[in-house]
Every structure is written in C-alpha cells, then in structure tokens.
Design a protein around this nucleic acid. Structure first.
Lengths: 213, 213
DNA sequence: TGCGAACCGTACCGTACGGTACAGACAAGG
DNA sequence: CCTTGTCTGTACCGTACGGTACGGTTCGCA
C-alpha cells in the first residue's frame, strides 16, 4: 500500500512522492479512461473489470473510492509538464514566441479529453476533498508559476511594463482562454483544432503585448 | 402538471413557457437552496422534506429526478435579467460606463452562490441532458447577445474598431473574467467583494478600450 | 353535508453500489 | 515439496436512493 487513505496530506509541490508501481499505474490509467468516458461516476467494480484486478486489491492499495479518485487525479497531474521558458537574452520576438507557444500549449491542454474529465471531476468534488486544490495547483496556479519568471525577465529587459505579477498573469490568462474553458466544460463547444489554437494564441499574445509592451 | 417530463423540449429563448405555480416555485427554490448547500447530490426525499411536500407530488409535477433538476435550472435561468444597454447617442464616457457596469454585474453574478451551484451542476451533467445548454444560453451566450448591440453601436459611433463581433466579445469576456470563474468553480478562491469587482470591471474595460478603442 | 381533487406523510420495493470475506491461482524462497 | 504472501474473481452484506402505492387530511364546491 503505497499511499493509504489516512496518510498525512502530501505537499502539492512534490509529485515524486506518489511512487506508484507499474501495476498501480495500469489501474490509474484505466480509471482515467473510465473518467473520460463517464466522468467521475465510475463504480469501483467497473474499475476492477477494466483493469483486470480485484476490488479487494483496489481497496488495499487506495483505501476507498475517494482515495482511488484522488490518486488518479494526482497521477495525471504529475504527468503534466509545462514548457520551459527562456529567461536570458530576451528579445521582443523571443518573448512573443515564448508567450504564443505557451498559450498554444495551454489551449491544447485544456481542450483535451483528459483535462476536461479531470476538471469536471474536480469542479464536482469541490468542497469535499483536495481534488479542486490539486487541479488548481497544476492548472492556473502552475501556469502562473511558470510564467512569472518570463514576465519578470521581460520587464527587466524593458519589454514589458506592469506593476503586479498576479494581475498581469490574470490578464494573459483571460486573453488566451476567453470563454473557451467554461464552454468546453459545459459541453457545448466544438473543441478548437490546432490551426484555430495557433491563431488564438497569436492573437492573444499580440493583444497582451499591445497592453503591456 | 405544468411541465411533464415527456413534453417536447422547449426552445430555450422563451422562458415564459415555464409557468410554474407558486407552490411549485416554493419547491424549486427549496431545490436551489439544497443545491447551494450540497450540489446536485440532493436526494428526492431531502427535497420533499425541505419543501414540506410529498415525493409523490414531486414525481407528479416533474416526472423524475432529472425533470426536477432541469426545471430548477430553467427556473433560476428565467430569473436572470441582464442590464439594458444603451445604444443611442453613445459617447466615449457612456460606452465606458456601460461596459464597466456590465462587467461588474457579470462578475457579481458568477461569484454568487447560486450561479456557482448551477454551473457546477451543469458541468457535472454535461452530455446527459440540456443543463449545460441552458446554463450556456443564459451565461456566456446570453451575455454575448446582450453585448452585441452595444459593440455595434460603438463601432457605428466610431468609438470601437473591430471586425468580428464573436471575437471582440470573447476578448471582453476574457478580460473581465480572467481566471476568476474556474478558480471559483474549483473551490479555491476567495470570492471578490464589491469593491474588488468594481476595480476589476474598470480595469478590464480600460484595457478593452485600449485594444479596440 | 357529502364528494372529489389535490396533496401530505410514510411505508414499501427493487436496484446499484461501496465495502468485506473468501476461495483458488501463482510465484518466491527455503 | 511445502509455505507464505500477493493477486484475481466472485459471492456476499448493508445501505442509500429512485420510484410507487396507499391511507389520511384539507379544501373547494355543489
């Protein structure tokens, strides 16, 4: 049992702590597939069936259904890797390219089936448990943490002009995402394809630089 | 029985169609209170208890649990009234005030307990039913519909400069909302108070006018 | 006053599911 | 070969809940 349900809550920054065995990872990936298909309303029995393991093993490994769900979210979150941001020798074109690339990568992530399923589950379970916290940490907050050095470097190089990092991030976020995420979560939007994503990323970056450049 | 479960789906634009009786409205408001408290995981029995009515009556009026949920969402949606937008004799100051007022009103709505509960339920039920569609219609889409004449009037008056209404709306939406809605839905954000909302609305409007003015 | 409709409260039924127990397969190690 | 531990598959239990049935009450109305 690598992570009993009653263990002390892990600090969200350390994702190496979740050292799942290969077999456990098979199980968690099966849960992810189930969540994409039917949200967080999967039954433990269906997980056992999909992963060809016994319910007893699931309870032994993950404590209870909530532990299984939370382990799954943590596992997926630990797979998210943000693109590295340059911070030395920044030119205007370099900054623009970095921002645009970041925006495109972010739009791609939040349009993905997995991200949608995870966000839905986290929205649903907010208040009871740490799912919302986890998704937030690896979502907007992680994005902000990654972007912050780039903003600061841009300001240092005289390419950006702003006061608070918090607010400049929120504006960039808004320009990039717009109403895409809420529409996608509500299930009523055609997901943007790569061409559309590239276009939006460039437009958002251009507007952002028009405001803060 | 004003709205049996097997009736033809109503077009979303006509909200007068849902002519609920006062007693039914009491029930629906009880459901709303329950949803604020515990999301869409209320039991039919708890609704009956909270509204002091019998389960049989609930099933008679609303068909099944889903009908009750969807009637509740429609009822709440029909209560949302957007501020009227001026469209004649538009000055720069008038446009700015209208946009800022709209933004503040919108931020107030999406920070409210009811909106959060409804959005959570709709996100959760996306795919099975029309909840997502309804919330979307009275959410971002309704906002866009209301804002469109203002944008067009602003362009006509030479105060705004843009090509597509769709895109200008999405940008305004992004500038106003930023990451507020997703953070609130994920349960990890202090809701902004009125002062904060006013500040954000003004900032967003200023930036919007800087981009499109 | 008698009647019927609407409604309340509650008991009841079937099922789905979380969680546990158990029997057998299989591998590791002495 | 025997033992021990881990795993699978299945059967099982208790409960919560969606949905139905029914007796009793209130109220409008003739």
């Amino acid at each position: 049992m690598s992570r009993p349900a009653d263990a002390a809550p892990a600090p969200l920054d350390t994702d190496l702590e979740d050292a799942f065995s290969p077999r456990q990872i098979e199980v968690l990936d099966a849960v992810l597939r189930l969540m994409v298909a039917e949200g967080d309303r999967f039954s433990v029995a269906s997980v056992a069936r999909a992963a060809s393991c016994s319910k007893e093993t699931l309870y032994k490994w993950f404590g209870d259904r909530d532990g299984l769900l939370s382990a799954t979210v943590r596992w997926q979150a630990s797979k998210v890797r943000m693109p590295r941001m340059p911070s030395e020798g920044l030119t205007h074109a370099g900054l623009e390219a970095a921002l645009s690339g970041f925006a495109a990568s972010w739009l791609t992530v939040i349009s993905g089936d997995l991200s949608i399923a995870l966000n839905r589950a986290a929205v649903n379970h907010s208040g009871s448990g740490r799912l919302g916290e986890i998704v937030l940490t690896y979502g907007p907050s992680g994005m902000a943490r990654r972007l912050e050095p780039l903003f600061l470097a841009g300001r240092k190089a005289g390419l950006l002009n702003f006061d608070g990092v918090e607010e400049v991030f929120s504006t960039f976020f808004g320009l990039v995402i717009g109403d895409t995420q809420i529409r996608v979560l509500l299930g009523g939007a055609a997901r943007p394809d790569q061409a559309e994503i590239g276009r939006r990323a460039e437009t958002a970056t251009r507007r952002f630089l028009a405001l803060f450049g």
